[in-house]
Each structure stands twice: as structure tokens, then as C-alpha cells.
């Protein structure tokens, strides 16, 4: 039982690390602030969640589990808000490359 949880936890840690790496590459390579925010929300959040799940499977003590759940909830709640604030600030201050946008229904609003 413990061995299975350890293996599963290890797999989760590895997958989470890979996703975080992909998020980092995305932030580095994407041409624009808004694209970068995509990388900073989705793979990053899932990466952190998988790392936390891996940790929970390895630690298995109630007080650690409470803390892990708390971190996961706050990560889910705050990452989109942070990305939106940065995206909005970038858009309003004109730091968005309009050549990369196919349509822009926010223009002129």
C-alpha cells in the first residue's frame, strides 16, 4: 500500500516538474505578454497541483494534508486573477503587439 502510494507520488512529482518546465519554456518563448500569461496560468497551475498531489501521497499525515489543500485552493483562486491583472495592465498601457492579434473586439472600448 505504502509502496504504491510512493510510486504514484513519484510519478505525480515528475509530471508536475515537467509541466512546470513547459510553463517556463512558454514564458520564455512566447512573443507577447498575453501569450505568456497563458503559459503562466494553465501548465503552471496544473504543475503545482500535481507536485502537491505527489507530496500528499508521500507525506500522508493529516496536518500536512490540510496545508497542501490550502495551498492548492489558493493557487487555483489567485493564479487567474494575477494573470488577468497583468494582461489588463499590458493591454491598457499598449504593450500588446497588435500584429499578433487576428481580431480585437476590445479595441475602441
Amino acid at each position: 500500500m505504502g509502496a504504491i502510494a510512493d510510486w504514484l507520488g513519484g510519478a505525480c512529482l515528475l509530471a508536475g516538474a515537467l509541466l512546470s518546465l513547459a510553463a517556463g519554456i512558454g514564458v520564455l518563448r512566447f512573443p507577447d505578454v498575453l501569450d505568456r500569461m497563458h503559459a503562466a496560468t494553465k501548465p503552471q497551475v496544473l504543475g503545482v497541483l500535481l507536485l502537491l498531489l505527489g507530496l500528499a501521497l508521500r507525506l500522508r499525515t493529516p496536518s500536512d494534508l490540510g496545508m497542501i489543500v490550502l495551498v492548492a485552493v489558493f493557487q487555483l483562486a489567485t493564479a487567474p486573477v494575477a494573470a488577468q491583472m497583468i494582461g489588463r495592465a499590458a493591454y491598457r498601457s499598449g504593450r500588446v503587439d497588435r500584429d499578433l492579434l487576428d481580431t480585437d473586439e476590445l479595441a475602441g472600448r
Binding site: K42, P80, V81, Q84
Partner: peptide, 15 residues
């Protein structure tokens, strides 16, 4: 707004 920032392809810019 929270959920669609985390689902495929979309991100909130303005509300």
C-alpha cells in the same frame, strides 16, 4: 472568469 482562465485556449483580459 476564474474557470475560463484555466480551461483551454482562453484568458480573461477585461471584464
Amino acid at each position: 472568469a476564474e474557470v475560463i482562465s484555466l480551461v483551454p485556449g482562453t484568458l480573461i483580459v477585461e471584464v
